[in-house]
């Protein structure tokens, strides 16, 4: 360990054992470090295992999922921590911002109490102190009139407001790491940038490290410090945000960036978007070679024979592609 990492994931695999059929390896040997105050983006499409990764970091996977590998958080190995200690950690040290704010807030509990519940679970505060803290948190996530929001039920709030409540919940105990699983996936384009701005502000003010998961490079642009690109359960490329956006190395990343840029520049009507042909492989039946090989425009013979090992074309960059070595 050269630097002090906040969390260090090493060779993490998660396997879902379905009753029928083959076990599915949703996350396959992932290693990743996050430093304190760092924002790391996980870029990948649905089904690539990114949400499973988020669950695994919190040690919160559905029954039937088996995880192997190591997750070292502040010197604590989460993989062999008993459930009680994990519970004390969740929300206190590592907090999750879920994907769909319409589903992630309990419909019969008011927003204020929902946030207060997190405080109650971790901090010895009196009811009055808790109430006060909740109001501060509500201001912090951008509500002008916290009293009104405090007693509002989730169904009385808009999508953007709900996501702010979820962020306030996650930030309640000032965790060291926020895990945000597609925090803007279900929001309008306008609201997306607001939420991203809020998360930026939180990092600035509290030095919270953030692991943000998204399928959309545009969300991560200008927000995350480092980006890990995931494809079919594996990380295929890691680099600083500038490197990944400016000079993507893996053909998948390159294609993804072309697509994303074609969708955000308002350069007039086009007759075709750049695209990647085909679909990502079914996680149930993964072939021997590079998982992107069937869709890759630069495939070589070796690509279908074995999985490319990790190459380090530059000191800070990792890429799994035979283009960068043999």
């Amino acid at each position: 360990m050269a630097r002090d990492h906040l969390i260090r994931v090493s060779d993490l695999s998660v396997t879902y054992c379905a009753d029928e059929g083959m076990p599915i390896r949703a996350v396959d040997g992932i290693s990743l470090e996050i430093s304190p105050q760092e924002i790391v983006g996980i870029l990948g499409e649905s089904g690539c295992g990114k949400s499973t990764l988020a669950g695994a970091l919190l040690r919160l996977l559905p029954p039937g999922a088996k995880s192997e590998g190591g997750i070292l958080f502040r010197g604590l190995e989460l993989m062999n921590l008993p459930e009680a200690e994990l519970r004390a950690l969740r929300g206190r040290e590592i907090a999750l911002i879920p994907q769909d704010p319409a589903l992630s807030l309990n419909p019969v509990i008011t927003a204020g109490v929902l946030i207060g519940e997190v405080l109650r679970a971790h901090l010895p505060l009196s009811a009055a102190e808790r109430r006060q803290r909740v109001k501060e948190l509500l201001c912090e996530v951008g509500f002008d009139r916290p009293e009104e929001i405090y007693s509002a039920y989730p169904h009385q709030l808009s999508g953007g407001q709900r996501q702010r409540i979820a962020i306030a919940q996650a930030m309640a105990c000032r965790p060291g790491l926020l895990v945000a699983d597609e925090p803007t996936g279900k929001l309008d384009a306008t609201l997306q940038s607001e939420i991203i701005e809020l998360l930026s502000k939180i990092r600035q003010q509290h030095g919270t490290a953030i692991l943000i998961i998204s399928h959309d490079p545009a969300i991560l642009a200008g927000f995350s410090d480092r980006i890990a690109v995931m494809y079919a359960g594996r990380i295929v490329e890691v680099g600083s945000s500038a490197e990944i956006f400016g000079r993507p190395l893996h053909p998948y990343t390159q294609a993804l960036m072309r697509i994303a840029s074609s969708m955000i520049t308002s350069a007039g009507v086009i007759s075709r978007f750049p695209a990647i042909a085909g679909e990502s492989p079914d996680p149930g039946c993964i072939a021997e070679g590079c998982r992107f090989e069937p869709r890759c425009s630069e495939r070589m013979d070796v690509c279908s024979q074995r999985y490319p090992q990790t190459f380090l074309p530059e000191p800070s960059r990792l890429v799994n592609c035979f283009k960068y070595g043999e």
Binding site: L96, N106, E117, V118, A172
Partner: peptide, 10 residues
Amino acid sequence: YVQAARGLGM
């Protein structure tokens, strides 16, 4: 929302 609450350490 119950999963989410679990993720916050209830």
